[in-house]
Structures are given as structure tokens and as C-alpha cells.
Amino acid sequence: MAKLRGTGMAAVNYPTGMHLGGDPTMALVHATSSGSFVVTLSSVELGQGLKTVLAQIAAETLGVPLEAVVVDTGDTDTGPHCSGTGASRTTHRAGNAVIAAAKEARQEMLDVAAEMLEVSADDLVTDGKGNIHVKGVVEKSLPAAEVAAAGQFVYGKSISGRGIFLPPASKQDPETGESAPYSTQAHACTVVEVEVDTETGAVRVLSLKSVYEIGRQVNPELVKGQIVGGAWMGIGHALYETTAPYYPAIDHAPYDFLNYVIPGAAEMPEVQCEILEYPSETGPYGAKGVGEMVANAPIPAIVNAINNALDVCIGEIPVTPEVVLRALEEKARADGA
């Protein structure tokens, strides 16, 4: 009996957006008289950070500070349609919709500023700090808040914009599968090292290293959060989690967190990750979806590492101690024969 180490790797691709497209999301942007820009939509904040990411995209497009953007989401009376918060689609779909809405609002804002400064709107730029000025002439400048107020009270203009992103709907040929099912593909590759206790069958993940290619990162801090959280979820799927421990039997189904085992802080190895940036033409500022793919490379990498450590061929998950011990028994039988 021994503790054996092994390494494994896996490479994956992941499609962005609802399968076969045709999944629109809309956004509205308007300036308040005090100079805030409100982005309104009906996507759902699940902790993934869509309010943060969409505020960044709106601020970038409008040319105003991040702090000036308010994201108001999750109400079907006020927010226009969203085809659901899933399928790694929100940054891509809602992000593109926000860009469209923010562009329209920005143009209105520059038109009002042009009237105020008596110049052409084409000659105006934003400084990202809340000011609009004439290209090359920083002194000829107006605060965006002042322009927003003047738009409403002096010029009778609504500084606002509408945006929708509708990826074209494709059909999947039932015979050949021919279709255009996604907007873009993100990529990841993971290497893990495991230690397997051949007496107990317990597996410990010692290290997990990944590289992700997700187009342009809108927010590296939140991307890292997804990758680390996904690595942990991958460990859960690979080693512990099941609602049917003796699948396909339905017996021994767990009813609580004592029997549905998910890994804890002590089961997490060191995680290293790197990001490659190859902007996608279809994404907002080049972004691809990252939310769902993050457990997909860790799971097979862990199973490959176990197979590597034990020289066995496990092809099922979760690889519980029982699965490990049965694989070792089978190998001993085969080696003996």
C-alpha cells in the first residue's frame, strides 16, 4: 500500500451563447439630470458580476468614469428583454447590447455638448474622467454632468440610447448536424498533480495549473474568481459529487450536505492561472464567455492524473475511493492473469 502520485492534463474549447443563437438581450441607457448614466436591463445578478462588467462596458463606450454608471437590472417592468442568464452569454450578449445603447446615448451627449460649445460634434472627445472637450483643446471642456442637465433643461433632449444584440438564429440539420451553433469559442488547458492513497482509495489534488484564452478580459479580477471557483467545482465533480451514488439505481440519494459531499477549503490545492488574450470579432471589446467552462478542463485532467498515478483506465466520475479501489482490484486481477 502506498501513496502514488500522477499528473494529468486536459484541453477544452467552450462555445459562447445559447446553442443556435437567436437569443437576444436588450439594454437601455439614459443620463440623469445629475450626470449619472443608468443602464437598464433584465438579466440576473447571480454573483458572477454582471453589474460590474456591464458598468465597465458602458463607462468605456460612453467615455465617462466607472463611478458614473449605475446598473439597474432584474425587473421585467423596467428592463427590456433578456433571453436568460446562462449559457456563458451575459457578457457577450448584454455587453454588445450595452455598447449599442451607450453609443447612441454618447452621440446624443456629444450633440448637446457641441451646441453648448458651438463646435461640431465630430470634433469632440471624452476624457474618461467625466469631461467632454474639443479634440486637442483641453481648455474647451464641459463636465458630462453639466451636459446631461443642459440636455434636459435647456435643449429638451433626452440623452439616452437603445441597444439590442441578436445573434442570428441557426437551424441544426437533423441529418448532418450542419449549423452555426455559437458566436465564438473560448479555450482552456489544465494540468493537475494528484496523490492517490492505494489503501483508502482517497485522492488528493496537489496542484492545478491552467491557461485560459477567453478573448478580451473585461475584468481580470472577476475572471480569476470564475477560474478558481470553477477549479474547485471541478474537484467536486471529479472526486465527490453525485445525487445517485449507485447510478443508475436511485437508492442512497443524499438529502443534505452531510451526504452530498462537496469539497471544503482543505481540499483546495494551490491554483495557478494565466490568461491569453485574442479578442473575438463578435464579442464586446473582444470578450468571449468564461462562466461555464471553468470546471471542464480540471475534471478530465484530474481523472487522467489518477489513471496516470495508478496505471488504470477509470472512465467515470466521481472517482470516489470505492471507484479507485475497484479499479485497483481489477488491475491486480488483470496483472495476475
Binding site: 454573483g47 458580476g49 453589474k51 460590474t52 458598468a55 465597465q56 462596458i57 463607462a59 468605456e60 467615455g63 466607472l66 446598473v71 474618461g128 478580451r216 478580459q217 473585461v218 475584468n219 481580470p220 479580477e221 472577476l222 474568481g225 488574450e277 479578442p279 471589446y285 473582444g286
Partner: peptide, 14 residues
Amino acid sequence: AEALNVVGQPVKLR
């Protein structure tokens, strides 16, 4: 990737 102002920054979750 082109250089941007807010997009690409490690902004904290709101």
C-alpha cells in the same frame, strides 16, 4: 487587444 480605459481593469465586484 487595443488599449482601453475601464475594460480590462481588475474592478472589484460591485
